[in-house]
Design a protein around this nucleic acid. Structure first.
Lengths: 209, 209
DNA sequence: AAAATTAGACCGACTGGTTGGTCTGTTCAA
DNA sequence: TTGAACAGACCAACCAGTCGGTCTAATTTT
């Protein structure tokens, strides 16, 4: 039996590291701690990873790759910028349930990535930003979003609002991740939708009444 | 001549550490590096700080203390929640020009604070959150903000949007920090202001036109 | 005023403990 | 018999923090 099994040592290491990194930070966790948590040895660890740095990279990469794919799919599913943005945000927010520890590590420890690892992640991260930015810009062009909107700032505002969720979201919290996603979409659309009735659509009517 | 001088070794150390930490992270910078950058020695460093941890704390504390004071002042200056929120956001965003490195360290390295340092910072941080939360709640109560608004999620959305600025803001950028602040206020007010004409005020007219 | 004393600021070699990573095995399934 | 998977003792490098000592300027004593 090769790869894939949930009980693979490799996956166990990643899983354990994720939670350790999330709580104590990358430099707050030693390889010794990781292997002891998993119940393996230095040998086991370095059989599957060339370095501690590579482990950090793998965690980053699995997350950003997943998110990027989801955003691309959401983007391809719709044509209207409003619907696209809504789908992207909702799909991204949903990731918090699955990848909370990945996300924490992604945003807390990314500046410890070095060399090629850093470039590889930066590239994908920029792709994701570009998707948001393009949608906002497209929305302005076709009149669904306000013309006066600064696409750059609005994009970063959206990203910030959504990304920041990793700092406070708890699965045990009052609101489900789906509800939070809906609230975010509501807030964002209210903030950026055009008031011009010429371009009004179902969202305008629903949200702006 | 005692204390205060800009050339004080203590201040020099803080200043240099700020930039080193911002770029390489707390654990990515050694005390040796710090003292070499400043042009002092281990002795000089440990004469002014009891530990590297204390230096990290001092950086956190000067920033959060400043922000908290600004928010309190802004809060005391106005009574209407809309004006209050606007003032708080604008004053907070302005801090980015003065305290950018502090903020980066604050959000990137805070989970390396230990023991009493951690509790002290957490306390002030919670106070700041509470100020935002209370304003939003007050706004709902008096009808200026939408009744359907979730105060918790909206507060965190606002905080996220604003806090995230540290990830992308450059002084050399296209927009000044003042313009960014105005855009944020605009986005936020559009998202949360009530549509009920009964409570409409100058901001409703200005923004929702 | 000159000498003696004190105290704070700063220096830098040194240390004890830790850490990421290596290397020589051992196990076991194919 | 072969090689992938794993074990764990070991190591060189590093790092936060220490400690005895120096320099200087203020303060006290004579």
């Amino acid at each position: 039996m090769r790869g894939g099994a949930i009980t693979d040592l490799r996956n166990k290491i990643i899983h354990a590291s994720l939670h350790l990194f999330e709580e104590h930070g990358y430099h707050g966790v030693t390889v010794k701690q990781i292997v002891e948590t998993v119940g393996t040895s230095k040998g086991g660890f370095y059989h599957h990873f060339t370095s501690k740095d590579e482990l950090l990279f793998v965690i980053h990469d699995t997350f950003i790759t997943y998110v990027l794919e989801k955003a691309t799919t959401a983007n391809a599913t719709y044509t209207s910028p409003t619907k696209r943005l809504q789908a992207i945000i909702k799909s991204f927010v949903k990731v918090f349930d699955l990848y909370k520890p990945h996300i924490s590590v992604f945003y807390q420890e990314s500046n410890y990535l070095k060399g090629k690892y850093e470039s590889l992640i930066k590239c994908k991260r920029d792709q994701f930003k570009k998707i948001i930015f393009d949608v906002v810009n497209e929305g302005k062009k076709c009149g669904e979003f306000r013309e006066s909107l600064s696409a750059e700032i609005a994009s970063m505002a959206i990203l910030g609002m959504v990304n920041w969720t990793y700092k406070w979201y708890k699965q045990s919290g009052e609101k489900s991740i789906d509800e939070i996603g809906d609230i975010f979409v509501d807030l964002i659309l209210r903030a950026i939708l055009s008031n011009d009735p010429t371009f009004s659509n179902e969202y305008h009517e629903f949200i702006l009444g």
